[in-house]
Design a protein around this nucleic acid. Sequence first.
DNA 1: TGGCGATATGTTTATATTCGCATATAGAAT
DNA 2: ATTCTATATGCGAATATAAACATATCGCCA
Lengths: 125, 125
Amino acid sequence: MAGPKGSKYFDIFLKFKVWLENTDGESILGDGRFELIYCIDQLGSLKAAADKMGISYRKAWGNIKDAEEKLGFLLVEKRRGGQHGGSSVLTPEGKKLIEAYKELLIEFDDAIYQITKKFFNKVNE
Amino acid sequence: MAGPKGSKYFDIFLKFKVWLENTDGESILGDGRFELIYCIDQLGSLKAAADKMGISYRKAWGNIKDAEEKLGFLLVEKRRGGQHGGSSVLTPEGKKLIEAYKELLIEFDDAIYQITKKFFNKVNE
DNA sequence: TGGCGATATGTTTATATTCGCATATAGAAT
DNA sequence: ATTCTATATGCGAATATAAACATATCGCCA
């Protein structure tokens, strides 16, 4: 599930990417961060999610914090301390976001398939 | 015509980007380069196109060369010397590519509009 | 043949991003 | 109290990307 989505035709690929931006044109959330949020939801921990994705905890934490600051609300409810050091679970808003995004990607894939087919037909006319 | 395309909802935007890649995962052509090619077509000169886009000739030339190398065919027919120093016109392949890309973007915009409407409805449920 | 203007290209400088190191803190359990 | 582990965060190093500088070449025309 890593890397941008896209369609293939012969040896050239038409790729696409979707992401959220705020009014200042700053990137808030893209595929990578959505996947990270998804992993947090699955694993209950930012560290575990970072490990699973093969990125450093520092980076994962920075990404979540940055997204939350730009969105203006929390995506993850974080606790620290305790027997297991701490934990992270999604807020209702975070949960809603990944659900909506998941469906978005499915619909995108559908649309892309149709559009790119036409594109390559045209290029090879 | 600069910057990524997208749809708006309240103060958050859903943006998208499309581009071509080769089998090595190298980016070949995106919005910027397509616009550059379009300008060359309009102006008949790489320098004039670079000026119009506000980028250096060095950069414009490098972009075109890079794209051509990765595609394996020429996008622009270049001539140097002569009364006016030289000129650049699109090859038939280059022309086809920008035509197809132009239509692609229109269809993308359509699809995006529908999909993002649904996305934001879901997020705000 | 000398000038002009666009193509052609290597080299270097600057800027922006990302990565990773180091370190602090919370809090349940023993 | 001490230990254990995940959250929290500043900062300098390492890369990647882009911008800028410097020159060479080509070929019509005066």
